[in-house]
Design a protein around this nucleic acid. Structure first.
Lengths: 345, 345
DNA sequence: AGGTGAATTTAAAGCGCTTTGGAAACCCGT
DNA sequence: ACGGGTTTCCAAAGCGCTTTAAATTCACCT
């Protein structure tokens, strides 16, 4: 059933039916009700393509997520992020179109997305440090919100981000207060902006205690369980092993924990661990007592916020860029304790 | 730049330009080249909505994923599944539109998706046991492929599934061959079809050894780390604890491992663990030596296959339903060993 | 009855593309 | 030079909706 048929059946013009269904004021209350009833009865649903063509809006939002070229891995936080974003889309009647893109041909891709016109705005995932996409998108004139920020980009754009720097600064300071001096960092890939910020926070907290950077205590890579395990195993086997680890994700922390246990040590007593916790649905950090001491910030909430921003920008293009910096909270679990005395135990 | 402008600039009709760009034969080679060059130069990209309206096809595929009402969690395998599916879509020029839906108002949703007409086919995720969606979709006449199957549905439909039953049968048999008799199952939610099949495989392998089902050794729930941990902790504290665990996901297995360690036991010696491994990119099962003995089947490959099927069905609607049953391989890790002798150790 | 302005409805154009049904141009042999 | 068959191109209709501009109806007053 399309509009024409519905109109014919009602003995009305398409115009009136269309207006009745879209809530325009200039239609008689009685006919509006009649139209709505008929629409329900015949399960009428306007064709999205035709509607889009006529209105110039597609009622959908693009999420472009880079898959790191080699491993082609989708960041596992993605599921939770879109769960949050979806809430907003459902409420506003928007669809979500997903595009995975390999690093490289992005310029062309974004331009095509704009010209194809099948999205009204896009969410940019996983920004890198000097991310060229931001300038590009600003030029294209397509509304966009970045999940994260890109350092070294001076122009103003909309973003939703967690305060990575402060989170890792606090976490590191927490460890130094416990007496730790040899603190390792197992980070995400450091061309990713968030990872860069986390390291900055880590280093600045160390510096505040007069502790210089130690390359042997810093690792970065895709945030897998294996990365955590391998990094921790190597470091713990070294000559002057760390007494504490800071990791960028729960999965990595689990790998670190495994290495600690394999080394015959006990997490929280011999070696402390703090991780960042995105509050992923399938990887909750313990139940009552958190498994790991962690900096916690819901990625799902970030998704919701980013989507809200974008919808707002689409509805009111005149408004300026929107920003939200989410603060992580430091939650105490069993994975941290005072630094063991050197030579002690 | 739209078609009309491009045509005017070339002194050609829209018809010819359109045909040139879409590879129709009735256009002079020279003009075709000229058109293509101009299209490149001006970065022309046809408007997807208009094209869709004209052709009746939207060039996009819908993925409908149910979010379990309470926890609103997106199955973590989803990221890898769409990574696989995306490959196919990119090659074929399709977009991927994502719809999260809460259990309940699905009937309306699917009908709307069809009538809105913004997808040419859909992939159905997480089928439940007697999943009403299948009959509904068959009625709607929208091509669809199910990731998984739905028991008790007699009609023929397209699906891609892993042979859950056989995988868990083999895994269980492997454990009984090692002498285990008290084997626990930590399953996914058992109204999900795959979980039901896994339990069937588990039970049938036990039955083959004359071992009856023991309710105290069977748990089911969302496949989180916590589920694994809690289930294993409880069971290990029981009067006649299991000597082996079978789990439905790596994350759950990690929880089981944690409980084993907390109980002062050693995985692979005191307690064996076999898990199903979906080969998720961020949760690889070890590097050279697998962490866990596992039934392994790539969910990414499943995604690729499902997408291929669907595209094939769209291209050739006359063809019958397509099926693919993927066999999991049993890989040996360090998490399994002979059953400890009762009273021994 | 006639006139006025507001309320309600409509016909038709237009969104940007594809595609049908011709028309024009070209080629060739006679 | 002309007919017939290919090539090559084009004008216009149509996809299903919104929206502009205009027509109709209605309510009310003189």
């Amino acid at each position: 059933m399309n509009l024409k048929e519905l109109a014919k059946h009602l003995n009305l013009s398409q115009t009136t039916v269309s207006r009745a269904l879209n809530g325009y004021p200039e239609v008689n209350k009685a006919t509006r009700l009649r139209v709505e009833a008929a629409a329900r009865e015949f399960n009428y649903m306007p064709n999205a393509r035709a509607k889009g063509l006529a209105t110039g809006r597609s009622m959908s939002i693009g999420h472009v997520i880079p898959t790191s070229a080699k491993r082609e891995m989708v960041n596992p936080v993605f599921g939770d992020f879109i769960t949050g974003a979806s809430e907003a889309y459902v409420e506003a009647g928007y669809d979500l179109v997903l595009t995975l893109v390999e690093d490289g041909d992005e310029e062309r891709l974004y331009r095509n997305i704009r010209d194809k016109g099948n999205v009204d705005g896009i969410i940019v995932h996983s920004p890198r440090m000097q991310d060229s996409r931001i300038a590009l998108l600003s030029d294209l004139g397509l509304p966009f919100v970045v999940h994260g920020r890109a350092s070294d980009i001076t122009s103003d754009y909309s973003w939703v981000d967690m305060n990575s720097r402060r989170a890792f600064e606090r976490a590191t300071a927490f460890l130094t207060e416990l007496g730790h001096r040899r603190i390792a960092l197992v980070n995400g890939l450091e061309h990713m902006d968030f990872a860069y910020r986390r390291r900055k926070g880590y280093l600045s907290a160390l510096a505040a205690q007069g502790i210089g950077p130690d390359a042997t205590l810093m690792r970065a890579g895709e945030m897998t369980e294996l990365l955590g395990h391998k990094s921790a195993r190597d470091m713990l086997a070294g000559p002057d092993p760390p007494t504490a680890f800071l990791t960028s994700s729960m999965v990595t922390a689990i790998g670190v924990r495994r290495a600690i246990q394999e080394a015959g040590l006990q997490m929280g007593r011999d070696v402390s661990v703090i991780t960042h916790d995105d509050e992923l649905a399938y990887l909750k950090n313990g139940q009552d007592v958190p498994l790991f001491t962690a900096t916690r910030s819901s990625v799902r909430a970030a998704g919701r916020c980013a989507a809200d921003f974008l919808l707002q920008m689409i509805a009111k293009p005149s408004g300026g860029p929107l920003h939200s910096l989410l603060e992580a909270e430091l939650i105490l679990g069993n994975s941290t304790g005072p630094a063991p005395r050197p030579g002690g135990g």
